[in-house]
Protein backbone atom coordinates (compact mmCIF):
# COMPACT_ATOMS: atom_id res chain seq x y z
CA UNK A 1 0.00 0.00 0.00
CA UNK A 2 1.38 3.35 -1.04
CA UNK A 3 1.24 5.98 1.68
CA UNK A 4 -0.15 9.33 0.61
CA UNK A 5 -0.13 12.58 2.54
CA UNK A 6 -3.65 11.84 3.64
CA UNK A 7 -2.55 8.53 5.18
CA UNK A 8 0.12 10.30 7.21
CA UNK A 9 -2.40 12.64 8.77
CA UNK A 10 -5.16 10.10 9.28
CA UNK A 11 -3.36 6.89 10.28
CA UNK A 12 -4.67 3.70 8.68
CA UNK A 13 -6.17 1.15 11.06
CA UNK A 14 -4.14 -2.02 11.54
CA UNK A 15 -5.71 -5.40 12.09
CA UNK A 16 -3.74 -8.49 13.16
CA UNK A 17 -5.07 -11.77 11.84
CA UNK A 18 -4.94 -14.97 13.92
CA UNK A 19 -2.07 -16.24 11.74
CA UNK A 20 0.00 -13.14 12.58
CA UNK A 21 -0.45 -11.28 9.27
CA UNK A 22 -1.08 -7.56 9.48
CA UNK A 23 -3.64 -5.83 7.30
CA UNK A 24 -3.92 -2.07 7.06
CA UNK A 25 -7.19 -0.36 6.25
CA UNK A 26 -7.05 3.19 5.02
CA UNK A 27 -9.07 5.72 6.91
CA UNK A 28 -12.16 6.56 4.85
CA UNK A 29 -11.84 9.66 2.70
CA UNK A 30 -15.57 10.32 2.76
CA UNK A 31 -15.64 12.67 5.78
CA UNK A 32 -12.75 14.67 4.34
CA UNK A 33 -14.42 15.03 0.93
CA UNK A 34 -17.71 15.92 2.58
CA UNK A 35 -15.96 18.63 4.58
CA UNK A 36 -14.43 20.13 1.44
CA UNK A 37 -17.76 20.09 -0.39
CA UNK A 38 -19.43 21.74 2.59
CA UNK A 39 -16.73 24.38 2.78
CA UNK A 40 -16.91 25.19 -0.94
CA UNK A 41 -20.70 25.33 -0.69
CA UNK A 42 -20.55 27.87 2.11
CA UNK A 43 -17.96 29.99 0.30
CA UNK A 44 -19.96 29.85 -2.93
CA UNK A 45 -23.05 30.83 -1.01
CA UNK A 46 -21.20 33.89 0.30
CA UNK A 47 -19.94 34.87 -3.16
CA UNK A 48 -23.29 34.53 -4.87
CA UNK A 49 -25.36 35.96 -2.03
CA UNK A 50 -27.62 32.95 -1.69
CA UNK A 51 -30.37 33.60 0.82
CA UNK A 52 -32.81 30.76 1.21
CA UNK A 53 -35.29 32.78 3.25
CA UNK A 54 -35.79 34.99 0.20
CA UNK A 55 -37.19 31.97 -1.63
CA UNK A 56 -39.89 31.74 1.01
CA UNK A 57 -40.75 35.40 1.06
CA UNK A 58 -40.48 36.19 -2.64
CA UNK A 59 -40.73 32.73 -4.23
CA UNK A 60 -44.26 33.43 -5.40
CA UNK A 61 -42.85 35.95 -7.89
CA UNK A 62 -41.49 33.00 -9.85
CA UNK A 63 -44.96 31.53 -10.03
CA UNK A 64 -46.36 34.92 -11.08
CA UNK A 65 -44.67 34.82 -14.47
CA UNK A 66 -45.39 31.14 -14.86
CA UNK A 67 -49.12 31.59 -14.22
CA UNK A 68 -49.20 34.69 -16.40
CA UNK A 69 -48.19 32.44 -19.30
CA UNK A 70 -51.45 30.53 -18.96
CA UNK A 71 -53.54 30.48 -20.90
CA UNK A 72 -51.12 31.09 -23.77
CA UNK A 73 -52.09 33.71 -26.32
CA UNK A 74 -53.21 31.54 -29.23
CA UNK A 75 -53.68 34.56 -31.48
CA UNK A 76 -49.94 34.98 -31.34
CA UNK A 77 -49.38 31.58 -32.96
CA UNK A 78 -49.10 32.95 -36.49
CA UNK A 79 -46.25 35.22 -35.45
CA UNK A 80 -44.27 32.26 -34.15
CA UNK A 81 -43.96 30.12 -37.30
CA UNK A 82 -41.56 32.39 -39.21
CA UNK A 83 -38.92 32.74 -36.47
CA UNK A 84 -39.42 29.08 -35.53
CA UNK A 85 -38.60 27.94 -39.06
CA UNK A 86 -35.59 30.26 -38.98
CA UNK A 87 -34.44 28.47 -35.83
CA UNK A 88 -34.87 25.03 -37.38
CA UNK A 89 -33.16 26.10 -40.61
CA UNK A 90 -30.25 27.60 -38.66
CA UNK A 91 -29.67 24.49 -36.63
CA UNK A 92 -30.13 22.20 -39.63
CA UNK A 93 -27.64 24.05 -41.81
CA UNK A 94 -25.17 24.57 -38.95
CA UNK A 95 -25.40 20.92 -37.91
CA UNK A 96 -24.92 19.56 -41.42
CA UNK A 97 -21.99 21.84 -42.23
CA UNK A 98 -20.41 21.12 -38.84
CA UNK A 99 -20.90 17.38 -39.16
CA UNK A 100 -19.32 17.37 -42.63
CA UNK A 101 -16.28 19.40 -41.63
CA UNK A 102 -15.91 17.26 -38.50
CA UNK A 103 -14.88 14.31 -40.71
CA UNK A 104 -11.52 15.70 -41.88
CA UNK A 105 -10.89 17.15 -38.41
CA UNK A 106 -11.57 13.82 -36.71
CA UNK A 107 -9.35 11.99 -39.20
CA UNK A 108 -6.52 14.47 -38.74
CA UNK A 109 -6.83 14.06 -34.96
CA UNK A 110 -6.76 10.25 -35.00
CA UNK A 111 -3.32 8.85 -34.33
CA UNK A 112 -4.13 5.52 -36.01
CA UNK A 113 -5.11 7.15 -39.32
CA UNK A 114 -2.69 10.06 -39.69
CA UNK A 115 0.58 9.02 -38.12
CA UNK A 116 1.86 12.42 -37.19
CA UNK A 117 1.83 13.22 -33.48
CA UNK A 118 2.27 16.94 -34.02
CA UNK A 119 -0.67 17.18 -36.43
CA UNK A 120 -2.90 15.00 -34.19
CA UNK A 121 -2.07 17.08 -31.14
CA UNK A 122 -2.70 20.36 -32.94
CA UNK A 123 -6.16 19.36 -34.17
CA UNK A 124 -7.12 17.81 -30.83
CA UNK A 125 -6.19 21.00 -29.02
CA UNK A 126 -8.07 23.07 -31.58
CA UNK A 127 -11.24 21.02 -31.10
CA UNK A 128 -10.92 21.23 -27.30
CA UNK A 129 -10.54 24.99 -27.32
CA UNK A 130 -13.43 25.36 -29.73
CA UNK A 131 -15.56 23.23 -27.41
CA UNK A 132 -14.93 25.47 -24.42
CA UNK A 133 -16.66 28.42 -26.08
CA UNK A 134 -20.33 28.44 -25.04
CA UNK A 135 -22.61 28.61 -28.09
CA UNK A 136 -24.23 31.83 -26.98
CA UNK A 137 -20.86 33.54 -26.70
CA UNK A 138 -19.70 32.40 -30.11
CA UNK A 139 -23.08 33.58 -31.43
CA UNK A 140 -22.48 36.93 -29.79
CA UNK A 141 -19.09 37.22 -31.43
CA UNK A 142 -20.59 36.08 -34.73
CA UNK A 143 -23.22 38.84 -34.63
CA UNK A 144 -20.41 41.37 -34.46
CA UNK A 145 -18.68 39.82 -37.46
CA UNK A 146 -21.61 38.80 -39.69
CA UNK A 147 -24.16 41.31 -38.45
CA UNK A 148 -27.44 40.54 -36.73
CA UNK A 149 -29.43 37.68 -38.20
CA UNK A 150 -29.58 33.99 -38.95
CA UNK A 151 -26.06 33.83 -40.43
CA UNK A 152 -24.50 34.53 -37.01
CA UNK A 153 -26.60 31.81 -35.36
CA UNK A 154 -25.72 29.32 -38.08
CA UNK A 155 -22.02 30.02 -37.63
CA UNK A 156 -22.26 29.54 -33.85
CA UNK A 157 -24.07 26.23 -34.25
CA UNK A 158 -21.65 25.16 -36.95
CA UNK A 159 -18.66 25.79 -34.67
CA UNK A 160 -20.18 23.94 -31.74
CA UNK A 161 -21.22 20.97 -33.88
CA UNK A 162 -17.77 20.77 -35.45
CA UNK A 163 -16.08 20.59 -32.06
CA UNK A 164 -18.61 18.20 -30.52
CA UNK A 165 -18.76 15.66 -33.35
CA UNK A 166 -15.05 16.05 -34.11
CA UNK A 167 -14.08 15.08 -30.58
CA UNK A 168 -16.48 12.18 -30.23
CA UNK A 169 -15.47 10.82 -33.63
CA UNK A 170 -11.72 10.90 -33.13
CA UNK A 171 -12.21 9.13 -29.80
CA UNK A 172 -14.26 6.50 -31.60
CA UNK A 173 -11.87 6.15 -34.54
CA UNK A 174 -8.88 5.74 -32.25
CA UNK A 175 -10.65 2.83 -30.55
CA UNK A 176 -11.57 1.04 -33.76
CA UNK A 177 -10.22 -2.51 -33.96
CA UNK A 178 -7.62 -2.38 -36.72
CA UNK A 179 -7.84 -6.15 -37.31
CA UNK A 180 -10.19 -5.86 -40.26
CA UNK A 181 -7.91 -3.19 -41.77
CA UNK A 182 -4.98 -5.59 -41.52
CA UNK A 183 -7.03 -8.41 -43.04
CA UNK A 184 -8.02 -6.21 -45.98
CA UNK A 185 -4.43 -5.23 -46.60
CA UNK A 186 -3.48 -8.92 -46.58
CA UNK A 187 -6.08 -9.45 -49.32
CA UNK A 188 -4.36 -6.93 -51.56
CA UNK A 189 -6.50 -3.85 -50.90
CA UNK A 190 -4.70 -0.52 -50.90
CA UNK A 191 -4.71 1.54 -47.70
CA UNK A 192 -7.48 3.79 -49.01
CA UNK A 193 -9.60 0.79 -50.04
CA UNK A 194 -8.97 -0.90 -46.69
CA UNK A 195 -10.02 2.30 -44.92
CA UNK A 196 -13.19 2.52 -47.00
CA UNK A 197 -14.18 -1.09 -46.27
CA UNK A 198 -12.80 -1.66 -42.75
CA UNK A 199 -13.01 1.66 -40.86
CA UNK A 200 -15.92 3.41 -42.59
CA UNK A 201 -18.56 0.70 -41.99
CA UNK A 202 -17.50 0.56 -38.35
CA UNK A 203 -17.58 4.29 -37.78
CA UNK A 204 -20.48 5.37 -40.00
CA UNK A 205 -23.40 4.30 -37.75
CA UNK A 206 -21.86 6.09 -34.78
CA UNK A 207 -21.17 9.16 -36.88
CA UNK A 208 -24.77 9.39 -38.09
CA UNK A 209 -26.13 8.76 -34.62
CA UNK A 210 -23.88 11.39 -33.02
CA UNK A 211 -24.80 13.87 -35.76
CA UNK A 212 -28.51 13.35 -35.16
CA UNK A 213 -27.99 13.79 -31.43
CA UNK A 214 -26.06 17.00 -32.01
CA UNK A 215 -28.85 18.29 -34.23
CA UNK A 216 -31.39 17.52 -31.50
CA UNK A 217 -29.41 19.52 -28.95
CA UNK A 218 -28.76 22.31 -31.44
CA UNK A 219 -32.47 23.04 -31.79
CA UNK A 220 -32.55 23.88 -28.09
CA UNK A 221 -29.45 26.06 -28.39
CA UNK A 222 -30.78 27.76 -31.49
CA UNK A 223 -33.93 28.72 -29.64
CA UNK A 224 -32.03 31.09 -27.36
CA UNK A 225 -29.51 32.42 -29.87
CA UNK A 226 -31.93 35.14 -30.89
CA UNK A 227 -31.28 36.64 -27.50
CA UNK A 228 -27.99 38.04 -28.70
CA UNK A 229 -29.50 38.96 -32.06
CA UNK A 230 -28.52 35.83 -33.91
CA UNK A 231 -31.95 35.20 -35.39
CA UNK A 232 -34.74 32.75 -34.76
CA UNK A 233 -37.36 32.29 -32.10
CA UNK A 234 -35.10 33.71 -29.38
CA UNK A 235 -35.62 37.19 -30.82
CA UNK A 236 -39.31 36.79 -30.24
CA UNK A 237 -38.77 35.58 -26.68
CA UNK A 238 -36.50 38.52 -25.96
CA UNK A 239 -39.01 41.00 -27.38
CA UNK A 240 -42.09 39.57 -25.63
CA UNK A 241 -40.32 39.14 -22.29
CA UNK A 242 -39.21 42.77 -22.55
CA UNK A 243 -42.81 43.85 -23.09
CA UNK A 244 -43.97 41.57 -20.27
CA UNK A 245 -46.35 39.97 -22.75
CA UNK A 246 -46.27 36.66 -20.87
CA UNK A 247 -49.22 34.92 -22.60
CA UNK A 248 -47.35 35.29 -25.90
CA UNK A 249 -44.15 34.00 -24.24
CA UNK A 250 -46.22 31.02 -23.10
CA UNK A 251 -47.34 30.45 -26.70
CA UNK A 252 -43.76 30.56 -28.00
CA UNK A 253 -42.61 28.12 -25.33
CA UNK A 254 -45.52 25.78 -25.98
CA UNK A 255 -44.82 25.56 -29.70
CA UNK A 256 -41.09 25.23 -29.04
CA UNK A 257 -41.77 22.38 -26.66
CA UNK A 258 -43.93 20.55 -29.18
CA UNK A 259 -41.41 20.99 -31.98
CA UNK A 260 -38.47 19.86 -29.84
CA UNK A 261 -40.49 16.88 -28.65
CA UNK A 262 -41.41 15.79 -32.18
CA UNK A 263 -37.88 16.24 -33.52
CA UNK A 264 -36.44 14.32 -30.57
CA UNK A 265 -38.79 11.40 -31.14
CA UNK A 266 -37.91 11.23 -34.86
CA UNK A 267 -34.21 11.46 -34.19
CA UNK A 268 -34.44 8.90 -31.39
CA UNK A 269 -36.21 6.49 -33.73
CA UNK A 270 -33.42 6.71 -36.30
CA UNK A 271 -30.70 6.52 -33.65
CA UNK A 272 -32.22 3.31 -32.31
CA UNK A 273 -32.15 1.87 -35.84
CA UNK A 274 -28.49 2.77 -36.23
CA UNK A 275 -27.19 0.86 -33.24
Amino acid sequence: MRETVYDKIFKPKTYTLSNGKEVKQRASRAPFILLIVLFVTVVSGEVTGVDLSMLRTRGHQFIVILTAMFPPNFNFMNNVWGPLFDTIQMSLLGSIAGALLAIPFALLSSSNIIRNRLLNGFFKLFLSILRTLPTLISALIATFIFGLGTMAGTVAIFLFTLSYIGKLMYEHIENVDMGAFEAHESMGLSKVEAFRYAIVPDVLPTYLSVSLYAFEGNIRFAAILGYVGAGGVGLLLDERLGWRDYPSVGMVLLILMLVVFVIERISEYFRMKLT
Binding site: T48, G49, M54, I224, L237
Partner: peptide
Protein backbone atom coordinates in the same frame (compact mmCIF):
# COMPACT_ATOMS: atom_id res chain seq x y z
CA UNK B 1 -38.93 16.74 -16.62
CA UNK B 2 -39.08 17.10 -20.41
CA UNK B 3 -41.31 20.12 -19.83
CA UNK B 4 -38.79 21.67 -17.41
CA UNK B 5 -35.92 20.94 -19.78
CA UNK B 6 -37.43 22.61 -22.84
CA UNK B 7 -37.73 26.09 -21.38
CA UNK B 8 -34.47 27.86 -22.25
CA UNK B 9 -32.27 28.72 -19.29
CA UNK B 10 -32.38 32.41 -20.15
CA UNK B 11 -36.15 32.45 -19.60
CA UNK B 12 -35.69 30.88 -16.17
CA UNK B 13 -33.00 33.45 -15.51
CA UNK B 14 -35.41 36.29 -16.18
CA UNK B 15 -38.07 34.65 -14.05
CA UNK B 16 -35.73 34.22 -11.10
CA UNK B 17 -34.50 37.77 -11.39
CA UNK B 18 -38.01 38.79 -10.41
CA UNK B 19 -37.55 36.76 -7.25
CA UNK B 20 -34.05 37.73 -6.20
CA UNK B 21 -33.25 40.83 -8.16
CA UNK B 22 -30.40 40.82 -10.66
CA UNK B 23 -27.19 39.12 -9.53
CA UNK B 24 -25.51 35.75 -9.11
CA UNK B 25 -28.23 34.38 -6.83
CA UNK B 26 -30.67 34.31 -9.75
CA UNK B 27 -27.98 32.41 -11.67
CA UNK B 28 -27.70 29.79 -8.93
CA UNK B 29 -31.45 29.16 -8.94
Amino acid sequence: VIFIRTIPSLVYGLMFIRVTGPGPYAGVL
